[in-house]
Nucleic acid binder design. Sequence first.
DNA 1: CTAGAAGTCTATTAATTAAATAGACTTTAT
DNA 2: ATAAAGTCTATTTAATTAATAGACTTCTAG
Lengths: 162, 162
Amino acid sequence: MKISQKGLYALQAMMMLARHYNQGAIRIRDIAYEEELPEKFLELILLELKNARLVESVRGAKGGYQLRRPPSEIRLSEVIRLIDGPLAPFGDAEQLRSLIDRDAEHRALYQVFLDVRNAAAKILESTSIADIANPSPKPRQRRGKKTQPGVLPMLVQNASRN
Amino acid sequence: MKISQKGLYALQAMMMLARHYNQGAIRIRDIAYEEELPEKFLELILLELKNARLVESVRGAKGGYQLRRPPSEIRLSEVIRLIDGPLAPFGDAEQLRSLIDRDAEHRALYQVFLDVRNAAAKILESTSIADIANPSPKPRQRRGKKTQPGVLPMLVQNASRN
DNA sequence: CTAGAAGTCTATTAATTAAATAGACTTTAT
DNA sequence: ATAAAGTCTATTTAATTAATAGACTTCTAG
């Protein structure tokens, strides 16, 4: 799997929306400005994220984008698969399994590819947007108990990253 | 990291040469035929493998290619890095480390990318060409003690694949 | 010692993908 | 009604990928 510039932009946009979760719709312009992304390109990316129902839009004046689910319930793998395709380094998991079954000569090679994809999937499916979006850009007006940044309610935690 | 068609061809060629290790130089044509690879394209790939000193060539009549080291001492990561570049899903390990140091906003994201590249590196650096090349295509004229296919003298063995 | 077999090198091409950019259109708050 | 904002379609440019072509060099065998 290769993460393109576009894929990186998508992840950055999602992180920004996570930081502003529950603050209403955020304009494309503001996302682009805060993350320093090309505005017109970002527009297309957000459309894709919307069609995949990861974000939702509000049209018209006062419109913008927001996450459709809490950041802790959006996995990095969802965003990456959408924008950059399968996590496998070659083909996709299904293809690889089929090749392992049918191509005796190269079975072991494809099995290695599948191992690599499984290792990547394990990480990217157990890391959420909340895990990587720093709580708030301006660390002001934080009332209530400080939520620890990396807490993942439903996903397995990778201890090595804390 | 994405493995291209070219990268797959390179790995297949290396596997074929591994099967014919210690049988002298093998002609491009024979590699292409046995692995069903486009001959002219394979030629360019072998040139690259030669420049990287993974294989060596014999020119002129009776010429061809052979591995420069025993198959058990050639890691998949060497071939993949040569043909398809860094193992990281974005940029390379050095860049990622630098971004983790300098870009506080996106540190955690780049750390995940680095985790993914480390997981891939672990697998691909501990698997050798010998591990994946089936011993010999025609199981004929095998004199001496049968060498077990997957034995890796210097590399850590991944038990799950045997 | 020369003919042919084989690798070497450079260039070109066609197709695809990546990364934008442009502009007209639609929806909605005020 | 107007302006702000998302939507949609098309176009462009550059890079990459996957190959193909052909002239050149080296070496072995006869």
